[in-house]
């Protein structure tokens, strides 16, 4: 093995390139969501100001905090798995699931509030974007949470962790992607005036 090979090994991610391609492709779809939101905001400024005023920033901020913390737990869990600290890994995975479920609970409360106030996906451009983009994001949270739950129940011994190392890394990446997409959605939908 020469120096160039060494370099190659150092740079290589433990995760398959395909996982990254999947994540980048998904991020590009969300990039289109951001673009559509900003463009519609440009076309219907008043509608968006009014719509934003009806949103509950508290729900949005709470969800951001919950998801950021869950991402921290997930990153730590991946590090624990690498270090073969199974107890720590299992505890962190459980904490990730708690935070992810909290996100879904808050999201449900928020949707219930909006729907009982008479808003729905076809109310106007603002609500179309609000419900569809946060809804697709929620589907991503549910998918991610299913994978994390699978980790909790099916990958628990140190042999299993070692055998599925790249799968654990992949789930972690997906969960971070869900997190970072929400960071942008929160700022764009709730905060930007």
């Amino acid at each position: 093995m020469n120096a160039a090979d060494d370099n190659l090994l150092e740079q290589r991610s433990p995760v398959e390139v395909g996982v990254w391609i999947f994540i980048l492709a998904d991020m590009c779809v969300f990039a289109m969501y951001f673009g559509v939101f900003a463009w519609d905001k440009h076309l219907h400024p008043e509608q968006f100001v009014q719509g934003q005023a009806t949103l509950n920033n508290g729900f949005g901020a709470l969800n951001t905090i919950v998801l950021l913390i869950s991402s921290y737990f997930m990153a730590s869990a991946v590090h624990a798995a690498r270090a073969q600290k199974i107890e720590v890994y299992a505890r962190l995975i459980r904490l990730t699931i708690v935070c992810g479920s909290a996100f879904l609970v808050v999201k449900t409360a928020e949707y219930t509030e909006k729907i009982s106030a008479g808003f729905h996906i076809a109310s106007n451009e603002f609500y179309r974007n609000y419900f569809s983009f946060t809804g697709f994001h929620m589907v991503h949270v549910i998918v991610g949470l299913s994978f994390v739950t699978y980790l909790l129940f099916s990958i628990r011994t140190s042999e299993q962790v070692r055998a599925n190392a790249s799968f654990i890394e992949g789930v972690g990446l997906y969960w971070h992607m869900v997190d970072l997409l929400w960071v942008v959605l929160f700022s764009l939908i709730y905060l930007v005036p």
Binding site: G18, I21, S132
Partner: peptide, 21 residues
């Protein structure tokens, strides 16, 4: 990587049920 892209294709279809709205 084509397999991962196939999974992404399936995910990309999630928007179509909104058509009738």
């Amino acid at each position: 990587w084509m397999s991962y892209l196939a999974l992404w294709l399936a995910a990309g279809m999630t928007a179509t049920p909104l058509v009738p709205f």
